[in-house]
Computed example of a mutant assay.
Amino acid sequence: MRRHLDPEVACLAKEVRTEWKTFFEKHLDRPSIEVRSDPKTESFRKNAQKLLSEALELKMDHLLVENIERETFHLCSRLINGPYRRTVRALVFTLKHRAEIREQVKSGALPVGTFVQTHKK
């Protein structure tokens, strides 16, 4: 439509595209909406948060713990399945036994997305 023969239509199409692009760039960094799951899934996710909090030596409601678990959950197609469980185990093991990685995650030097992606099973 930006190449329409009518200059008014072309101008309006350009404006719509500019507004659309600006809107998506502003909203790109917003977190996705969390929907409550069934009780069994919620229980598994809380347990995963507990294990991660112990490995990070942080409280269970700390934002970093929630972000790591949420990233893992989303990376595993929002399912509590074998890959989710194996990934959580790998993350917990790494955080417990590799102090340098634990400190990088806690300080923010190693982004949560990168950390989870490298340990996905």
Rank of each mutant, 00 (worst) to 15 (best):
23 F>W: 11
24 F>S: 09
24 F>Q: 14
25 E>R: 13
25 E>M: 12
25 E>S: 12
25 E>Y: 06
26 K>V: 05
26 K>T: 10
26 K>W: 05
26 K>F: 07
27 H>F: 10
27 H>G: 04
28 L>T: 04
29 D>F: 13
29 D>K: 12
29 D>Q: 12
29 D>A: 12
30 R>W: 07
32 S>A: 13
33 I>P: 00
34 E>R: 13
34 E>T: 09
35 V>G: 00
35 V>Y: 12
35 V>D: 02
36 R>K: 14
37 S>T: 09
39 P>Y: 06
41 T>D: 07
42 E>T: 07
42 E>Y: 08
42 E>N: 14
43 S>N: 12
44 F>N: 08
44 F>H: 11
45 R>M: 15
45 R>L: 15
45 R>V: 15
46 K>W: 10
46 K>L: 15
47 N>D: 13
48 A>C: 08
49 Q>V: 04
51 L>E: 08
53 S>N: 06
54 E>H: 13
56 L>M: 07
56 L>C: 06
56 L>K: 03
58 L>M: 15
58 L>D: 01
58 L>P: 02
60 M>I: 15
60 M>S: 10
61 D>K: 15
63 L>V: 10
64 L>I: 11
67 N>G: 06
68 I>K: 00
68 I>Q: 01
69 E>I: 04
69 E>M: 15
70 R>D: 07
70 R>G: 01
70 R>K: 14
71 E>C: 12
71 E>W: 00
71 E>I: 04
71 E>M: 08
72 T>Q: 01
76 C>S: 12
77 S>H: 08
77 S>I: 03
78 R>S: 12
78 R>Q: 13
79 L>W: 05
81 N>I: 09
84 Y>P: 01
84 Y>K: 03
85 R>E: 10
87 T>Q: 02
90 A>D: 05
91 L>K: 02
91 L>C: 13
92 V>Y: 01
93 F>W: 07
94 T>M: 10
94 T>H: 02
94 T>F: 00
96 K>Q: 14
97 H>V: 03
98 R>H: 14
98 R>G: 00
100 E>I: 11
100 E>A: 13
100 E>H: 13
101 I>W: 00
102 R>A: 07
102 R>P: 03
103 E>L: 15
103 E>V: 12
103 E>C: 07
105 V>K: 02
106 K>F: 02
107 S>H: 05
108 G>C: 03
109 A>I: 09
109 A>P: 01
110 L>G: 05
110 L>N: 03
110 L>M: 12
111 P>D: 05
111 P>L: 07
114 T>R: 09
114 T>S: 09
115 F>I: 04
